[in-house]
Design a binder for these strands. Sequence first.
DNA 1: ATGCCGACAGGATGTCGA
Length: 260
Amino acid sequence: MKIATWNVNSVKARLEPALAWLKQANPDVVCLQEIKTVAESFPREAFEALGYNCAVHGQKTYNGVAILSKRPLEDVTPRLKGNDADDQSRYIEALVAGDKGVLRIASIYAPNGNPLGTEKFTYKLGWLERLAAHARDLLANEEPVALMGDYNVIPEDNDCYDPRAWVNDALFQPQSRAALRKIEFLGYTDAFRARHGEAGQYTFWDYQAGSWRKNQGIRIDHILLSPQAADRLGACVIDREVREGEKPSDHVPIWCELDI
DNA sequence: ATGCCGACAGGATGTCGA
C-alpha cells in the first residue's frame, strides 16, 4: 500500500491542489495536518468522491489532523494520551487493512515550540515525550505501525540548508532532536533516511524570503515505521514538485510504499 | 534587526506558523 503524509496548511484553502495531487499520486492512505477546521466543516464529500473514507480530529483556526483511506478506517482514536488537559488537536490514529495485513497509522502534528524560553517550547518537548511513550506502548503489539506527519523537528544538520540559520529555533534544538531520536532508538525507522542518504532533501520551504526559489528548506515531515512496517518498506519519496503549484502549502507530501 | 508570506477570524488588524 502507498501511504502519504502532508501538512496542507488549511484543508479548505488547499482543497483544489489537494484533490489534484490525490488524483495524480493515488495513495491508499493519507495523513493530513493543520486542517484548521472542525470535523463538521471538513470537506468530506470532495474526498469521498475520490473514494476516500475520512477520520477527522479537527479544531477551529489552528491545528487539526485527519486520515483519508480508500479502505475503511477501524479503531479510530483521536488525541494523544498522557495529558487530559491538552485540548490541541494534533493526533489521530486508526487501523487500516491492506492486501497482506493490517497497518496501524497515525497522523501527527507536533507543536512548533517557538519561541524558546516560553511555555510553547516546554509544551513541545512534553508533547514529544508523550508521543514517545505511546510509540513505545505500540511496539508491544508487534504489528506494523506508521507514525507520520509534521514532527517540527530537523533531525540532522544536513536536513536544513544552513544550520547556522536554525540554531536559535525550536525545530533545531538539541532537546527537540533528542526527542525524535528517542523514538527512533525505541526501534522506529525514519523511512526517508532508510532509502536516501543525500543531504538537502526538504519537505518545507517558508513562504517568506524566497525560500522555495533559493531552495532554503528543511526536512521536518517524517514517516516513522515500527520494525514490522520497516521490514516491508519499499520506495520513499518527497513530492517536492507540489511546492511549485498554484496556492501551495508551505509543506509538500512525503509518501512510502509498504508491502502490506 | 527579526520582517519578508499566508491563513484565520471577523469585519481591522492581531495571532500564529517555522
